[in-house]
């Protein structure tokens, strides 16, 4: 084991290995911080979901905890007003482009969005924001997998596990702005797909599903 460092999170002292990502350290010690895009052991955090903010003593603005490694004497707060404010607005933005139809979603009850909404004490509604959904509702160009753009939170975890498993970019982000989606590059490149279904298993929200006989 490497050197241990001590830090204080929400008033509790934690002792963790030097070099640990702050978010991992908190999660390992039972301190929940909402997050979507984080995967343990990544070289560079994408820091794209903008949920895992924490306040650090000495830093004016909240910082995503996936981008920090633990430091001796670090004082962290996970539930300040500023932090919760950012988390709630990020979640509401995600919900404003999300097809909230949990009853028909395979991720129902194990969905990360449901968990985070419950944790933040907000409903699955994008309060004050209009709802915008993308067309088409389902992309079916992969022979085995269906993709639901309006469930997807674009955390990019599927892309990363796919690369880790296959060493090849079989899937990627495509398009820009609001239209950004996950793409399998049409049917042609799915030839390389080894049907490991890593992407399906890692998806936090049920945006990637197995093709059903009637779909």
């Amino acid at each position: 084991m490497g050197n241990m460092v001590k830090l204080i999170v929400d008033g509790t002292e934690l002792e963790v290995e030097e070099g640990t990502v702050l978010l991992d350290a908190c999660l390992d010690h039972g301190i929940y911080i909402p997050h979507l895009c984080h995967l343990k052991g990544m070289e560079q955090p994408p820091a794209s979901c903008r949920l895992c903010f924490v306040s650090i003593e000495g830093i004016a603005h909240p910082v995503p905890s996936c981008t920090l490694t633990v430091r001796e004497g670090m004082v962290v707060q996970t539930d300040t007003n500023a932090v919760r404010g950012l988390q709630i607005s990020a979640l509401r933005l995600l919900l404003s482009v999300h097809d909230v139809d949990c009853a028909h979603c395979p991720a129902n009850k194990k969905c990360a969005l449901q968990k985070i909404a419950k944790f933040l004490h907000i409903g699955l509604k994008a309060k004050g924001l209009e709802i915008y959904l993308k067309e088409p509702r389902v992309v079916q160009d992969h022979p085995l997998i269906d993709y639901y753009p309006n469930r997807c939170v674009l955390c990019g975890r599927c892309i990363r596990v796919c690369r880790a498993q296959n060493g090849l970019p079989l899937m990627s982000f495509a398009k820009r702005g609001f239209d950004t989606v996950i793409s399998f590059y049409g049917a042609a490149s799915t030839l390389g797909c080894k049907t490991c279904f890593a992407c399906l298993k890692i998806c936090p929200v049920g945006a990637i599903t197995l093709k059903t006989p009637n779909s």
Partner: peptide
């Protein structure tokens, strides 16, 4: 399209 705030 990467981060939530800018994209949405």
């Amino acid at each position: 399209g990467k981060c939530t705030f800018c994209r949405i």
